[in-house]
């Protein structure tokens, strides 16, 4: 049998395989243990954590759209203390890397989160930059280059953990944000977050989400995600975690070819609770079938 190496080094973050979960779709891990042997995952990225617990948005919070779904959950989470006390001990007992997505309303909040999570022993943090910056009129960190740069630079100074910046696709040119991430000390970029969308019930004339707008995810956004991963791959040298509508191994391989070193499954977990391991097994089978020994042979392997 052919020896296949599925391990991947994302800078100093070393994963035994490239399949991760996307923040906000895997809760705090335990919920999926009935379906998935969590030890087999490359990494678990848990739901975004803020300093204080957040109760989230009114319902309806989700609606289905063609080949996708809109969500406006509103970042409901147990808060930093609740996470460290109630969720982290279980996560640390698993034989996989634990990555925590963090979100704040000011740079100081991000720093406090990163420092505390480093002390608590997580393996990496991922910056969720799609939150409004209350000190700058509520514009999202991830769409304004100057505050985006300041955020990454500041968090970088306060943590030695591998730092992942999750890029928003709701920008005119994602390459600008990829380059800033690299220049300001981000070790890894992950993309794409959801694309802002909206859907209307034509009978009631009301928006189908209480929040009016929401984030679009699922296979509907995959071609956009692939394009953006490819653009970023040609722009930066730091590794890329690709995500956006991955349901099957074939979808994941598309991301590798566009330039991703690892992939994250998001909405796919809702469609199929075993999606992560199905994708992992499918990647191995594809590599075996094609005679590919290492993921390095796939990443950025697009011919053009």
């Amino acid at each position: 049998m052919m020896k296949i190496n599925l391990s991947v080094n994302l800078g100093k973050l070393k994963l035994k395989n490239p399949v991760m979960t996307a923040s906000g779709t895997f809760a705090y891990g335990k919920e999926y243990s009935e379906f998935v042997d969590l030890d087999r995952l490359g990494a678990i990225v848990v739901k975004g954590i803020s300093l204080k617990p957040m109760k989230g948005n009114p319902e309806p919070r989700i609606c289905e759209t063609p080949c996708g779904m809109l969500n406006a959950i509103g970042l409901q989470n147990v808060g930093l203390k609740g996470f460290i006390r109630q969720q982290l001990p279980y996560l640390k007992s698993l034989r996989t890397k634990i990555i925590v997505n963090i979100l704040g309303n000011s740079i100081d909040e991000y720093i406090e989160l990163a420092e505390n999570l480093e002390s608590a022993g997580v393996d990496a943090v991922e910056l969720n930059v799609s939150c409004p910056n209350v000190n700058k009129g509520g514009i999202a960190f991830g769409t304004e280059p100057v505050v985006f740069a300041e955020l990454i630079k500041s968090v970088r100074r306060h943590t030695s953990l591998p730092l992942i910046t999750k890029l928003s696709p709701n920008v005119a040119n994602i390459k600008v944000f990829a380059k800033i991430s690299e220049d300001e000390g981000s070790d890894i970029i992950s993309l794409i977050n959801t694309i802002t969308g909206m859907s209307i019930n034509i009978r009631s004339r009301r928006p189908r989400l209480a929040n009016i707008t929401g984030g679009l995810s699922g296979p509907a956004i995959r071609p956009i995600a692939i394009r953006m991963v490819w653009e970023c791959y040609r722009t930066v040298r730091i590794p890329i975690i690709g995500m956006g509508g991955i349901i099957t191994a074939e979808d994941a391989i598309e991301f590798f070819l566009a330039g991703a070193s690892a992939v994250a499954i998001g909405t796919g977990n809702f469609v199929n609770p075993k999606a992560t391991l199905d994708v992992l097994d499918g990647i191995r089978a594809f590599m075996a079938g094609e005679g590919i020994h290492s993921l390095k042979e796939l990443t950025g392997g697009l011919k053009w």
Binding site: A27, E31, R61, N71, P273
Partner: peptide
């Protein structure tokens, strides 16, 4: 969306 308590939808 998920039915198993993870999406909070």
């Amino acid at each position: 969306a998920c039915g198993i308590g993870t999406c909070l939808g």
